[in-house]
Amino acid sequence: MQNWHYILLIVLLAYILISVSLYFLQDYFLFKPEKLSKDFQFFYDNQEIEEYNVETRDGAIINGLRFKAQNPKGVVFYLKGNSKSIKGWGKFAVDFTRHGYDVIMVDYRGFGKSTGRRTQKAVKRDMQVIYNKIKEKVTEKYIILYGRSMGSGFAAKLASMNNPRMLILDAPYYSLSKVAKKYIPFMPLSLLIKFPMPTYKWLKYVNCPIHIIHGTDDRLIPYKTSVKLSKIKPELTKLYTVIGGGHKNLNTFESYHKMLTEIITTKPRKVNLEGSSINVRHSSKRANAKA
């Protein structure tokens, strides 16, 4: 029995050690930031840009770029994924400027030139500050929120608290807690994870059109995740499927660009269901036999 006590003690200590390590090292696993020097100069071929810095109430600096379109129809606030900096993500702005939309991209705390201690609450607050800055120049009916991967959670949160023209989610997750649970199912993640990012909860309070784009071969965030998310507000949501698309390569598919063009250039219209088969139900064989 004494040996069992030792084994139990060792297992318990190992579990505690893993839990403590997970709590303090999760930033390393969740975020892959690229740091940029203060004097770094952004440049993109055939793109006109304007760099800006916004100071938050706790003294952090949020660095961002505005990609300018000719005679803009509106603004796309693009919330990027968990890696690199806007130095690399900026190349995707052309997918919106070519359709006549300005694009705002920012680096989260600790990414690029942005500073400050990174917490879920702080980043949510930062994104609202940037959104408010955009609203000073553009009315909300001309603002599109685009969230890519990790940014999809922050975009959903913003949409739940504001009234943008639409919300576009690119390879979104149900919640980061759910993603982590897939890899470490034996850990008490509800207590340990600092960035639970419950996208599914925030979507419940979104009142604008929701467009979800996901690849069928996404191995990081499975396609079925978007199917589940699309059922939260089905009356407002449309799911777009990129056949064969992975997590990082949707932009290499022609179908993705066709979908994006349709989303941001087509005006929504109400479908007249009068005279359609919407209320027609198939009869059972037994009922047909009686008839």
Results as ranks from 00 to 15, higher is better:
85 S>M: 04
286 R>P: 00
51 E>S: 15
188 P>Q: 07
108 Y>D: 13
275 G>C: 00
91 K>Q: 08
258 K>I: 09
66 R>Y: 08
142 Y>V: 00
4 W>N: 15
255 S>Q: 13
274 E>H: 03
55 E>G: 08
176 L>K: 05
147 G>Y: 02
220 L>A: 10
52 Y>L: 02
88 G>F: 08
154 F>W: 08
45 D>E: 15
269 R>D: 06
172 P>L: 06
85 S>F: 00
48 E>I: 12
111 F>A: 07
133 K>F: 00
8 L>R: 11
81 G>S: 12
26 Q>F: 01
108 Y>Q: 10
19 S>I: 01
123 V>I: 15
249 N>T: 00
37 S>T: 10
134 I>Q: 02
268 P>F: 04
170 D>A: 05
155 A>F: 04
256 Y>L: 04
73 K>S: 06
221 I>C: 06
269 R>C: 05
275 G>A: 04
39 D>K: 10
7 I>T: 07
76 V>M: 08
93 A>I: 05
182 K>F: 10
254 E>R: 13
183 Y>K: 03
269 R>G: 09
233 K>F: 02
242 V>P: 03
96 F>S: 06
230 S>T: 05
139 T>P: 08
99 H>C: 04
291 A>G: 13
247 H>D: 01
33 P>M: 10
148 R>Q: 14
202 W>S: 11
40 F>P: 03
41 Q>F: 05
94 V>G: 01
61 I>M: 14
188 P>V: 03
120 Q>H: 06
245 G>D: 02
238 K>H: 12
62 I>G: 10
174 Y>S: 09
250 L>I: 06
149 S>I: 02
216 T>K: 02
232 I>W: 02
57 R>T: 15
285 K>L: 14
91 K>G: 09
65 L>A: 13
89 W>A: 08
183 Y>R: 00
195 F>V: 11
130 I>Q: 07
168 I>Q: 08
108 Y>P: 11
56 T>Y: 03
236 L>G: 08
